[in-house]
Design a protein around this nucleic acid. Structure first.
Length: 805
RNA sequence: GGGCGCAUAGCUCAGCGGGAGAGCGCCCGCUUCACACGCGGGAGGUCGCUGGUUCGAUCCCAGCUGCGCCCACCA
């Protein structure tokens, strides 16, 4: 074996081999009937994978590899998402940079352009997953715009139509003036902004005084239809029911009372603009007020704004403020910092606008999903996220599914000249109501999450009743980031139950968010992102996977290169101890028949570690598993076992060689899900391997390993006592031999003193005796705790004895 | 403003009711035939603050302070 382990030479080779040999395919290595299925959260085709994807990929790959090795029929479904607005945003910005625009080239050419853009990014993404060693079923790559997938999306829409869940309504929505589309609440991000708060006087119509209202958007005064105060606000008791005159347009509007008004803010009087503010829209609906619109879809003042038409809002604001100032209606202006909704893709300020959109009524469809969560047929991990998911379903609002974009799935909705609406798929020949053949398709496209919601079963062929669907649905695990629980995961659950007849998975893992080392969010725009490919290039995929798994436990974690470095050390250590064993076991066959105590010990230790590690995988506690694997390899396998058998290996002891190979095999099996490459490379050099490690099972357990295996623990204790006190306690011949091999007695570092150790033990004995003398402790503490304390006391006394204390 | 979470060694984090831990960094000693990405040893912590529960609290409860993420229609 080469003296130095170089991951960059080894890893790509195995990635190619595994895939070429079909070992990434669904069902590879299958030895039992049970399936284990994960559909990867389809990354957006807009760009490359980031550290969060690498972390999530590592988690999922561990689970897939672990189940594959145990003989499950595994399927890890790959693919990507067309990411409607996100992709349109990227391509649109490219066009702007090229001096043209979406509108200039037209819809058809634009969509063509997007497809071309995707060919590259799709390849990049799958290449990154391959380089991480992710054992996805790459032969089954799916895209949410594939023909078959589009078919599923259309059927879903028509299904909702047939169910009566779809409706079209004129409501106030979040409008992005850059993309000129409605977006959902979930696509709005709030950012702090510095505005001016303008206090304007609205005189009473009868000329007796005025009410002052505060607004950050004076231009919307033109669309005011009322002034509202809180019902219990004593200051305005007499004003309610009277009429005030709106500045600039000089229109008389009522003063009304509504408890949505916050009496603490501003003057406690709120101008009501149903056309341009969500709260006002709600108040307007309650009081049956008209809706006026003075701002258009492009964010500028529209023709309703009269002389201000065509101005930007900022210009209009100034014009209105000037008007107020001239007529002494301006009380004051003051700086005001507040959170403003912006488009999550382009960060343009959201314009609340009234527009006609398609909605899904969520009252019915959410119910079975809520039941599945409450009954724990679907469990979120950690538990706190389960509670959040339940709450989200309880409070779920209706879903605005139409977007005024060009890139996406066009709605299967047709209008006839008489205004009838038909939704069917395949496309209808004629209007469902009047039979007219003159149909025009709705130009809008669907919310990108509408298609993502179908991911677990549309990738398996739904709505066709395919063999894949019957075999691999429902799946098992979904692992994803916290922020898309409502956007994606909950929607997969309710649509899965509704369309595919069952929950799509049983366990949802919400993994940690990887922050930049300085604690800020990892983001391209902040320049705080770290490319997983860079980390892989520097330390290897195995090391990167190890590091990310170690970082996966907390809710938010700062990226730590140290954790990756630890992974790299583990890979190197494994390589080196394998060199030791392989160089000294030529001609030997692995044979796990324990002879000496150190052999019984390591085999028992490996069995115990396997149980602990698998239990941690099953709990999705990846960090705990990885920690166990590290100390198993370094402390137990290398520092004690390998050191203990060295003399026998050098002496060509055939029993030591046979057991060493058997023990090494088991160590590799345990480590493979975390570090697949280095383990497979070593495995390939072991004698007479029938199968690749990637599909190899843990050998039948042998209970003989467990017998008398604690002998080596006594050696470790003896070394510890000797190190601290300088006194070597009595040991048996075997134990003496091992101690000499691992820590030759003439080299036993003796820093402590016998007296110091005796003093320490006396203190422990006193503490322990004190506890056991405490009647309330003995009476109240659990029996095993009391028993444990008695055992500790006995051990301290024995050690004291051995030291002659 | 609401929800969730975090405050433990210089750094990144485990532990979560009965002896303060790991990795990195730092200091000392080791060119011993697997490995200096190593081996052996060591220094370094009133476990954020204040109360409470308990025989006993880093661990449970309450409040406070600081921080992070998610969510949110205060004009």
């Amino acid at each position: 074996m080469e003296p130095t382990y170089r991951p960059e030479d080894v890893e790509p080779r195995w990635q190619e081999a595994w895939e070429a040999e079909g070992l990434y395919r669904a069902g590879a290595g299958r030895r039992r009937d049970e399936t284990f299925v994960i559909a990867v959260p389809p990354p957006n085709v807009t760009g490359a994978l980031h550290m969060g994807h690498a972390l999530n990929g590592s988690l999922q790959d561990v689970l897939i590899r672990w189940h594959r090795m145990r003989g499950f029929d595994t399927l890890w479904q790959p693919g990507y998402d067309h990411a409607g607005i996100s992709t349109q945003n990227v391509v649109e910005k490219q066009l702007v940079a090229e001096g043209t625009s979406r509108k200039e080239i037209g819809r058809e050419a634009f969509v063509e352009r997007v497809w071309r853009h995707l060919e590259e990014t799709g390849r990049t993404i799958m290449g990154q997953y391959r380089r991480l060693g992710a054992s996805l079923a790459y032969d089954r790559e799916r895209f949410t715009m594939d023909d078959a997938y589009v078919e599923a999306v259309m059927r879903f829409f028509v299904h909702c139509w047939d169910r009566g869940w779809l409706y079209r309504a004129n409501r106030i929505v979040n409008w992005c003036p850059f993309h000129e589309t409605a977006i959902s609440d979930l696509e709005v991000v709030h950012e702090p902004m510095d505005d001016m708060l303008t206090y304007a006087r609205y005189p009473f119509a009868d000329g007796s005084g005025a009410i002052t209202v505060a607004t950050v958007r004076p231009a919307t005064i033109l669309a005011d239809v009322a002034v509202a105060v809180h019902p219990e606000d004593g200051r305005y008791r007499d004003a309610v029911g009277r009429e005030v005159v709106v500045p600039f347009v000089e229109r008389g509007v009522p003063v009304l009372a509504d408890d949505l008004v916050d009496p603490e803010f501003g003057t406690g009087a709120l101008k009501i603009t149903p056309g341009h503010d969500p709260t006002d829209f709600e108040i307007g609906t309650r009081h049956d007020l008209p809706v006026l619109t003075v701002i258009g879809p492009d964010g500028r003042m529209n023709e309703e704004a009269g002389e201000l038409a065509g101005l930007s809002q900022k210009e209009a604001d100034e014009a209105v403020v000037a008007w107020l100032r001239e007529r002494d209606r301006l009380e004051k202006r003051e700086p005001h910092r507040h959170n403003v909704g912006t488009c999550e893709r382009c960060h343009t300020r959201i314009e609340p606008l009234v527009s006609l959109q398609w909605w899904i009524a969520m009252e019915e469809p959410r119910k079975p999903a809520l039941a599945a969560l409450v009954e724990r047929r679907v469990r979120y991990h950690p538990e706190s996220q389960h509670a959040f998911a339940v709450r989200s379903l309880e409070e779920i609002p209706d879903w605005n599914v139409s977007r005024q974009l060009w890139w996406g799935h066009q709605l299967p909705i047709w209008y006839c000249p008489d205004g009838h609406v038909t939704s069917s798929w395949p496309p209808p020949e004629a209007c469902g109501e009047c039979g007219s053949g003159e149909l025009e398709r709705d130009p809008d496209v669907l919310d990108t999450w509408f298609s993502s919601a179908l991911w677990p079963y549309a990738t398996l062929g739904w709505p066709e009743d395919t063999e894949d669907l019957r075999r691999y649905y429902p799946g098992h695990v979904n692992s994803t980031a916290r922020e898309i629980i409502r956007l994606w995961v909950n929607r997969m659950i309710w649509t899965g139950i509704e369309l595919a007849g069952d929950i799509p998975f049983t366990d949802v893992i919400i993994h940690s968010t990887v922050l930049a080392p300085d604690g800020r969010r990892m983001s391209k725009s902040l320049g705080t992102g770290i490319d997983p490919l860079d980390t892989i290039a520097e330390h290897g995929a195995d090391a990167t996977r190890y590091g990310l798994l170690k970082m996966s436990s907390t809710q938010d974690v700062r990226f730590s290169e140290g954790a990756v470095g630890e992974g790299r050390k583990l890979a190197t250590k494994l390589w080196n101890v394998s060199r030791l064993i392989l160089a000294n076991t030529e001609g030997a066959e692995p044979d796990p028949r324990p002879q000496a105590v150190e052999e019984r010990w390591i085999l028992a230790r490996l069995d115990a570690a396997r149980a602990a590690v698998e239990e941690a995988w099953a709990r999705f506690d990846f960090a705990a598993a990885v920690k166990e694997l590290y100390s198993l390899t370094f402390d137990d396998f290398c520092d004690w076992y390998a050191e203990a058998i060295k003399p026998r290996l050098y002496g060509d002891d055939p029993a030591a060689a046979a057991t060493a190979l058997a023990a090494l095999e088991r160590l590799l099996l345990l480590l493979h899900p975390v570090m697949p490459h280095v383990t497979e490379e070593i495995w390939s050099r072991l004698p007479a391997r029938a199968a690749r490690l990637i599909v190899s099972p843990w050998p039948e357990p042998d209970e003989r390993f467990a017998s008398d295996a604690d002998a080596l623990e006594r050696v470790r204790d003896a070394a510890e006592i000797a190190r601290r006190s300088g006194v070597l306690v009595e040991l048996g011949a075997d134990e003496r031999r091992i101690l000499d091999a691992v820590v030759p007695s003439e080299q036993l570092p003796v820093n402590g003193s016998r007296e110091g150790e005796v003093a320490r033990l006396r203190k422990e004995v006193a503490r322990s005796e004190g506890m056991l003398a405490n009647e309330r402790f003995v009476a109240n503490a659990p029996p095993e705790v009391v028993e444990g304390e008695r055992e500790k006391l006995a051990r301290y006394r024995r050690e004291l004895d051995a030291l002659g204390g």
